[in-house]
Computed example of a mutant assay.
Amino acid sequence: MSPRLVLLGPPASGKGTQGRRLADDLGLAYLSTGALLRSAVEEGSTLGREAAPILARGEYLPDPLMCTIMADWLAKHPDGWVLDGFPRSIAQADFLSEWLAAKDRQLDAAILLEVPVEELLVRLGNRIECPECRWSGRPKDLNGAARCPECGGVTGPRADDTPANFRSRLAEYEENTLPVVLRYEQAGLLHRFDATQDPGAVAARLLDLVKSLKSHGQAA
């Protein structure tokens, strides 16, 4: 079977860039919970209306709502995926573990992207996203153009990329997600990566990791 992976890290650590690239390279389903929620807000869906004021405060959605969203997505993608932005809490990690156990499956790896706070702040002011396909990157990735390299949409800064929102998201990450990191580390599933390197170099190392898991029979 194809590997099942979760991508962890503080805001602006590169989860979107690396998660999408890894999924594309391996032919896996990819989910960015942040991108999914931002799309819902822009579309004005029921989920979007519920999520909008929470996201505007730089907070994450409550666990019951997030787990309901994930249950629906996982039911459609039972095998072979990269999850970016989930689980973000112990309750969410418990949900994912129980969902996998009920399917007689397991998580293959949890990948942690590590970046110093000072660099995260620099990245925050230099991050753009396509509202059409949710490609994310940096202005220099566009080679002087203003169009998304994936779909041709008009790119721009994310609406939630403000210093106040960043501080709020970082505080929530430290309080709620670092315990998830510790749990996966104790379970022998965690792989730490220095994500300050060139994105291409990080992507190559991530791909090597997953290939090594498969060659050793860990991805099942």
Rank of each mutant, 00 (worst) to 15 (best):
P3V: 15
R4I: 09
L7D: 03
G9S: 11
P10Y: 05
P11D: 02
G14N: 00
G19Y: 02
R21F: 10
L22I: 07
D24V: 03
D24A: 06
Y30D: 04
Y30G: 02
S32N: 02
G34A: 00
R38N: 10
A40E: 11
V41H: 08
G44M: 07
T46Y: 13
L47R: 08
L55K: 09
L55F: 09
R57T: 14
E59D: 15
Y60Q: 14
L61A: 08
D63H: 06
D63M: 05
P64S: 12
C67A: 06
M70E: 04
A71C: 12
H77A: 13
L83Q: 01
G85C: 01
I90F: 04
A101N: 05
A102K: 09
A102M: 01
D104Y: 03
Q106M: 08
E114G: 09
L121C: 09
L121G: 07
V122H: 12
V122A: 14
R123V: 04
G125W: 05
C133H: 00
R134E: 06
S136P: 02
G137I: 01
L142T: 11
P149K: 06
G152K: 02
G152S: 12
T155Q: 06
R158P: 04
T162I: 14
A164Q: 14
S168F: 04
S168T: 03
R169H: 00
A171S: 08
E174G: 05
E174S: 15
E175D: 13
L178I: 15
V180A: 10
V180N: 10
V181I: 13
L182D: 15
R183K: 15
Q186F: 08
L190T: 06
F193G: 08
A195I: 00
G200K: 09
A204P: 13
D208L: 12
K211L: 15
H216L: 08
H216W: 07
G217N: 00
G217V: 01
A220C: 15
